[in-house]
């Protein structure tokens, strides 16, 4: 009897809902961000190209750009982000405890992290592969030449385990020395403690600049692993997670659809492509469906740019790192970047 009443009540509630404005699932995180007026974004301690603060304290990089785009989508202003630098080891507690709204810091997506840390990965903003940097004088051409070498690595990183697994599989005797921070490991490598330092190819391109004589070192081209990286959130608050996911999708979709920060006004006013119109809020109410303003992606693209603009500026052809698009190219151009439709 009681159950029937409840069911009836629920049905009545559902029937009444469309009559009002669309009811949104509660999102404490989005409410908190809006009340605070800024997004709290956990980034890397300092990795040129991905998240790096200049001498004025201004953060730049691919991971930083993503947080700026998210802030533009939620708050309408790409500058309303507070960046919290985190080490490899600080990143989980700082996210789990709610000190930051998300991590955007070169973090590799793995099964056990997703399953046991109470965290979700919201997409891939950089396809990374692990490799080694070695001295030119060591005459090493590929990772298989490293038998007998010592390798410096950051403790607790995926690289630490990858390297141990990779050498063990090949019965190679390699000494792995685990440092607490990436910068400590690089400094020890530079001081001659190790024959190689291992990290992602993209990360190494940026970290190479920290060496005393960058020209004396080479980065081995052949990766030993796949390390897809992207923004990370806590479990719970599905609506906020959807926002994080779709802002990243939106940046990639904008590139695929040819929307850039330069032509976004023109596209919004004149584009006949329905997906472009929905993305930019000229048609439908996609922003409102997530509890944001309808020009959420317009703001993100206008203020930060699409994925290609961000990539080229931070790690790609217009940056100091000059990393090829490679796997981080659209699927239509031979890469792996793909986004579900805005429909």
């Amino acid at each position: 009897m009681k159950k029937t009443t409840l069911t009836l009540l629920a049905l009545a509630g559902m029937a009444a809902a469309p009559a009002m404005a669309q009811t949104l699932a509660p999102s404490p995180t989005l409410d908190a961000i809006k009340a605070r007026g800024s997004l709290e974004c956990g980034v890397h301690l300092g990795l040129p190209g991905f998240s790096f603060a200049n001498d004025k304290g201004e953060w730049t990089g691919l991971d930083v750009d993503y947080c700026k785009a998210l802030a533009a989508a939620i708050l309408g202003d790409a500058n309303k982000v507070k960046f919290t630098p985190t080490s490899v080891q600080q990143r989980w507690p700082i996210l789990q405890s709610g000190q930051v709204d998300l991590l955007s810091r070169n973090t590799t997506i793995t099964f056990s992290r997703n399953a046991s840390l109470g965290i979700n990965f919201q997409g891939i903003n950089f396809y990374e592969g692990q490799t080694f940097i070695v001295r030119k004088s060591a005459n090493v051409k590929a990772a298989k030449d490293l038998d007998g070498a010592s390798v410096c690595v950051a403790a607790g990183s995926t690289e630490e385990k990858n390297a141990a697994d990779w050498f063990r599989e090949r019965s190679m005797k390699v000494t792995i020395t685990n440092f607490q921070k990436n910068d400590d490991a690089i400094a020890a490598y530079d001081a001659g403690r190790c024959d190689a330092y291992t990290a992602g190819i993209g990360a190494l391109a940026g970290q190479r600049a920290k060496l005393k004589v960058p020209g004396d070192h080479i980065i081995l081209a052949e990766p030993i692993s796949n390390d897809p990286q992207g923004p990370v959130t806590r479990y719970g608050d599905e609506r906020y997670q959807a926002v994080v996911r779709w802002v990243l999708n939106g940046m990639i979709a904008a590139e695929a659809l040819g929307v850039t920060s330069k032509n976004v006004d023109d596209m919004k006013a004149n584009s006949k492509n329905a997906e472009v119109r929905r993305l930019l809020g000229a048609e439908g109410n996609f922003g409102a469906m997530l509890g944001l303003s309808n020009d959420w992606m317009y703001n993100a693209i206008k203020q930060v740019g699409n994925y290609a603009e961000s990539y080229d500026r931070t790690v790609g052809k217009d940056s100091a790192l000059k990393i090829e698009r490679g796997q981080n190219q659209l699927w239509t151009k031979g890469g792996l970047l793909f986004t579900p439709p805005f429909q």
Binding site: W92, S112, C152, A155, G156, S157, E160, T177, N178, Q180
Partner: peptide, 24 residues
Amino acid sequence: GAAIAYPDIVSLFMGSALNNTGQA
């Protein structure tokens, strides 16, 4: 020792193992 990569209990267990399992 954790500051200089000496593999003591803090470095190995509270560093590497903690990060791999997250069971702080």
